[in-house]
C-alpha cells in the first residue's frame, strides 16, 4: 500500500481528459488538494503534483479511467492505471504496453492488481515498465489472454455492478435508481425519460451520459431499446453562444 508521500513531487499525475465536460469526481476524491477545478464544473482539472500523496482515490473515482500515476523507482517506472476491461491481469503477469492508439510499445510486468474499492468492476493495476514507455502507455493487455473473451456473466456483472445511486447523468445528478423507477413505472421512450427524470437535460446535454446503462435498463424492463428512441441530437451539438448563433461578430 502506498502511504502519504515522503517527499513532494514523488508522483507524476497524468490526466487525459480532452473534453471540457461537467465532471469533477477526481477533484472531489482528492483529499490533498492536488487536483482542483479552476473555473467551473466544465473546466479540465488542474494538477499540482507536489501535493499528490499517491493515494489513487482519483483513479478509482474517474468515470472514464483516464488518470495515470507514475513513480520513478530504481531506474524504471511504476505506472498505475485503472483498467476497465476484462480479463483482469494478475500479479506477476507479463503485459503488453499499448499507447493511446492501441499500438504495442513493449512489455511490462504487473506488480500489483487489485479490484477497485468501489463497486465499479474496475481493476487498479500497477505495472513496472521502462520509463520512456510508461509515460506513453495508456492501456495494457495480458500476453496471450488478450483475445480471450470474458465470460458473459462476468461482463454483465461489470455493467450492472454500478450502484443504484450511481449518477448516470452527472449534470443533473439523475441516479440509476431514478431511471429504473421511471422505466418500471412504464416510461417507454427515452426522450420522455429525459423529461421526467431530467437525465441529459444539463450542461452537457447527454453527451456524457451512459447510453449503455440506459439500454440495459430498458432491456431489464423487458422493452426493446431500439424502440425506445434514444434522445436525438439537436442543434447545437455543443454549447455555442447566442452571439455566435446570431451570426454577429463581437464588434457589431
Amino acid at each position: 500500500m502506498r502511504g502519504p508521500a515522503e517527499k513532494s513531487g514523488r508522483y507524476k499525475l497524468l490526466m487525459e481528459c480532452p473534453q471540457e465536460i461537467p465532471c469533477d469526481p477526481c477533484a472531489s476524491a482528492c483529499s490533498t488538494g492536488a487536483i482542483s477545478l479552476e473555473r467551473e464544473l466544465c473546466s479540465r482539472p488542474r494538477v499540482r503534483e507536489e501535493l499528490c500523496s499517491g493515494c489513487l482515490s482519483c483513479l478509482e473515482a474517474c468515470p472514464v479511467s483516464c488518470i495515470y500515476l507514475m513513480e520513478e523507482v530504481e531506474g524504471s517506472s511504476l505506472l498505475t492505471l485503472a483498467l476497465d476491461r476484462l480479463p483482469r491481469p494478475r500479479k506477476g503477469d507479463e503485459v503488453i504496453l499499448k499507447d493511446a492508439r492501441g499500438r504495442e510499445l513493449g512489455r511490462g510486468r504487473v506488480v500489483r492488481s487489485k479490484k477497485s474499492r468501489k463497486d465499479s468492476g474496475l481493476c487498479i493495476l500497477t505495472v513496472r515498465a521502462p520509463s520512456d514507455l510508461a509515460a506513453i502507455t495508456r492501456t495494457v493487455e495480458v500476453e496471450g489472454r488478450g483475445a480471450e473473451y470474458p465470460e458473459p456473466e462476468e461482463a454483465g456483472a461489470h455493467l450492472s455492478g454500478r450502484a443504484e445511486d450511481f449518477s448516470v447523468c452527472r449534470c443533473e445528478e439523475t441516479s440509476r435508481a431514478t431511471l429504473k423507477v421511471a422505466i418500471e413505472a412504464g416510461v417507454r421512450h427515452a426522450r420522455n425519460l429525459r423529461r421526467l427524470t431530467r437525465m441529459g437535460l444539463g450542461l452537457c446535454q447527454g453527451r456524457s451520459c451512459a447510453d449503455l446503462l440506459l439500454k440495459e435498463l430498458f432491456e431489464q424492463a423487458g422493452c426493446d431499446p431500439a424502440k425506445a428512441g434514444m434522445p436525438r441530437a439537436r442543434v447545437p451539438l455543443r454549447p455555442v453562444t447566442l452571439r455566435e448563433l446570431s451570426g454577429r461578430t463581437r464588434e457589431e
Binding site: L203, Q205, P236, V240, T241, L242, S246, R248
Partner: peptide, 11 residues
C-alpha cells in the same frame, strides 16, 4: 446581456 451565454439545446 445574454449574448455571451451558451445555448445548450433547441427544441
Amino acid at each position: 446581456r445574454v449574448s455571451e451565454l451558451d445555448v445548450i439545446r433547441s427544441f
